[in-house]
Amino acid sequence: MALFDTHRPGFNRLLVLVVVSIALMSLDRVGTRWVGQVDQGLGSVTDGIIETIHQPVVMVRSIGRWFGDRNELHGELDRLREENTLLRGQMQQFVSLKREVDELRALLDGEASDVPAVLLARRVGHPPTPNDHLFTIGRGFGDDIRPGDPVIDAQGVVGQVLRSTATGATVIELTSRDHMLSVVLGESGRTALLRGTGADHLVAERIPERTKVRPGDLLTTSGIDEAFPRGYPVARISKIETDEAQGFIRLIAEPVADLSRLDYVLVVTAPPDGGTSTPSGAAETIDRPAVPPATDAAEAADGD
């Protein structure tokens, strides 16, 4: 029966599919919008699959929790409660400090420091590509996650959202070869571009030789790239390589975030001084203050 029909495929169909594939590849490379939409639509299916195959892991973990030692759990609970109280206490201080900073900034250049909105998301899987540092999280488009949103963990910057679909989102880690961000070098105030290498470290090249940096210095986001809000810790300098002939140094840095054991991450959905508010923010610093004096005065009065 079926074996004796040739079912030899037509060349026309092959050629059409080949041309369509090549067109799709070039449009994707260029970054056409509707290709992105196709990617997002189909990605909802694949992210759903990733989410589904992650379910057994969740189940095993919750069963394991059932059998966990009771005393251990209570110890954990106490520890977390203490930590929570501590953090809340520090938070109070932070709120008053923020108010002070806002007042001072309003006097200086009229820039307000909003606290960004963050969203807790669980890591559900990673795509099977050996060289790309990508992973999938269980929150998506419905939770206001957009491509380009910064992703952080408790220690520092993790990466950025690459694609957001109905069932999840893909995050690119800052150590990926395709990722780059702008950082402030320690206390020197100088900014540099920090590039992922595909390995576990980051590289900042072409830093002028006289920049005062030491191994162990913390690199924080500068906010210039409009992708990350200012001031998040990114990495620590582990090595400084000099290139005497060129007059530049090259910094090797290790990310502060624990990228090897990510379980939960925070997505900054509304970056205050990056992303959406930036175009107006850039104008504000030059011409007019961003914070209207009335509200600022009200806030100050509220503080007193």
Binding site: V18, M25, P127, D132
Partner: peptide, 18 residues
């Protein structure tokens, strides 16, 4: 679908599969 799932270049695996 494989391209989309792996965040690769859209159409590459499609071409190879074809």
């Amino acid at each position: 679908m494989l391209d989309v799932a792996t965040n690769g270049l859209l159409g590459l695996n499609a071409l190879m599969f074809t």
